[in-house]
């Protein structure tokens, strides 16, 4: 095994251990507390919060992926070609909306709790995936798409057999960006009472307890890094399999 992989597995093991039995790590966070504050957040189980956090991110990401890839396919077909310039500029404009604003604006429509967070993450996650899917589907090697037409593939066979498989690594890079943003942004959801790890951080901000802020931030940050690494590895494997070079960060 490579040292990098060992380090990641150790970090993952530590993360899981901390989430399952946070009390046994109290000594790590004790120095951050003052005036006898608790070192570990116990109002809610860290495990439940983590599961809920990841569930929200997963649902939002799956939904954004389906819609974003679907739209990218639509605007790159002859039928939807008219929408291509518009969709590009919408993706560009959409990215200027701050997540907090999206979240806050979703509240009047959806009320407090998980729903506005899901919607905010879903909308915010659409953009990187859409942009990458568009890049992936519009920058295929011309000789390959030409050959696919030339051998007599139908539109559908070309899409499923050639275009999507070749665009997958680039789309995956978009999903990776989207997930990493969502994992961090989901914490803000706790300001509108969603059940995420942000709850721990906000409890820390309200009671001025650094230990809480640190443990919430640490769990979220480490999760984001691990997910980022895992998806990058998957991308590299796919790229190597298709003999392509990496084109997108």
């Amino acid at each position: 095994m490579k040292p990098g992989l060992i380090i990641r597995l150790v970090v993952l093991a530590l993360l899981v251990a901390f989430i399952v039995t946070p009390e046994s790590f109290a000594w790590v966070f004790q120095p951050l507390t003052k005036n006898g504050q608790p070192a570990i957040y116990v109002q809610n189980s860290l495990l439940n919060l983590t599961v809920s956090h990841l569930t929200i991110v997963a649902i939002a990401t799956i939904a954004s992926t389906l819609l974003a890839v679907g739209l990218a396919i639509l605007v790159t077909r002859p039928f939807g070609a008219e929408f291509l310039p518009l969709s590009r500029s919408l993706a560009n404009i959409g990215q200027t909306f701050p997540p907090v604003a999206v979240l806050a604006l979703a509240v009047p429509v959806l009320g407090f709790g998980t729903a506005p967070t899901l919607v905010a993450l879903f909308l915010y996650g659409l953009l990187p995936i859409f942009e990458n899917a568009l890049t992936g589907l519009t920058t295929l090697p011309p000789a390959v798409t030409e050959a696919a037409r030339g051998v007599g593939m139908t539109d559908r066979q070309r899409l499923l057999g050639v275009e999507l498989p070749l665009a997958t690594p680039v789309i995956l890079a978009g999903i990776r960006l989207s997930v990493v943003i969502s994992v961090a942004t989901a914490t803000i959801g706790s300001t509108v009472a969603a059940s995420t790890l942000g709850e721990v951080i906000i409890a820390g901000l309200l009671s001025n307890n650094l230990a809480f802020i640190a443990q919430g931030g640490l769990v979220v940050g480490v999760m984001a890094v691990l997910i980022y690494d895992a998806l990058s590895a998957l991308e590299r494997a796919l790229m190597a399999r298709t003999g392509q070079r990496r084109q997108h960060a």
Binding site: A143, E146, A147, G150, V151, R241
Partner: peptide, 14 residues
């Protein structure tokens, strides 16, 4: 029914 070969071969890389 018609064979088609192009410059730069156009092989499916995947």
């Amino acid at each position: 029914r018609i064979g088609y070969a192009i410059q730069g071969h156009g092989l499916f890389p995947h």
